[in-house]
Amino acid sequence: MGGMGFDEAAAAVIQAGRAAAARGWVPATSGNFSVRLDGGRMLVTRSGRDKGRLVPADLAEVAIDGPAPAGTSAETPLHQALYRDDPAIGAIFHVHSPASMLISHLRAGDGVLALAGWELQKAFAGITTHDVTVTVPVFPNDQDTVALAGRVSAHLATPRPGGQVAAPGYLLAGHGIYAWGATPADAERHLDAFDALFSLSLELRRIAG
Rank of each mutant, 00 (worst) to 15 (best):
M1D: 11
M1L: 05
G3Q: 02
G5W: 11
F6Q: 03
A10W: 06
A10D: 03
A10G: 06
A10P: 13
A11C: 11
A12Q: 04
A12V: 10
Q15W: 12
Q15L: 14
G17E: 10
A19C: 08
A22D: 14
A22W: 03
W25V: 03
W25R: 03
V26F: 06
P27W: 07
P27Y: 06
A28T: 13
S30M: 03
G31F: 09
G31Q: 03
V35C: 15
V35Y: 01
V35E: 07
D38K: 08
D38C: 03
G39P: 01
G40E: 03
R41K: 07
R41N: 08
R41F: 06
V44H: 00
T45V: 05
R46A: 09
S47Y: 04
G48H: 10
R49T: 05
D50R: 13
G52N: 04
G52L: 10
G52K: 08
R53N: 07
R53Q: 15
V55M: 04
P56Q: 01
L59Q: 04
E61Y: 01
I64D: 09
D65H: 09
D65G: 15
P69A: 07
G71L: 13
A74V: 07
E75L: 00
L78R: 07
H79R: 03
Q80T: 08
Q80S: 01
L82M: 12
Y83H: 06
Y83N: 02
A88P: 12
A91Y: 02
A91T: 12
F93Q: 04
F93M: 10
F93H: 07
F93E: 08
H96S: 06
S97E: 06
A99R: 04
M101E: 12
L102Q: 14
L102M: 10
S104I: 11
L106H: 13
R107T: 12
A108K: 12
D110I: 09
V112L: 06
A114G: 12
L115G: 01
L115I: 05
G117P: 09
W118P: 03
E119C: 01
L120A: 07
Q121A: 13
Q121G: 12
I127L: 11
T129D: 08
H130E: 13
T133G: 04
T135N: 13
T135H: 15
V136W: 01
P137W: 08
V138S: 00
F139Q: 10
P140R: 02
P140H: 11
D144G: 11
V146G: 05
A149Y: 07
R151M: 08
R151V: 04
V152Y: 03
V152W: 10
S153A: 15
S153E: 05
L156S: 00
A157H: 05
T158Q: 13
G162E: 15
G163N: 14
G163V: 11
V165H: 09
A167F: 10
P168T: 09
A173Y: 03
G174C: 09
G176A: 07
I177K: 01
I177E: 05
Y178V: 02
Y178R: 01
W180C: 00
W180P: 06
W180S: 09
D186R: 01
D186W: 11
A187C: 10
R189C: 15
H190E: 00
H190D: 02
H190P: 07
L191D: 08
A193V: 07
A196E: 13
A196G: 12
L200P: 02
S201N: 02
L202Y: 05
L204K: 14
R206K: 15
R206Q: 14
I207V: 15
I207Q: 13
G209R: 14
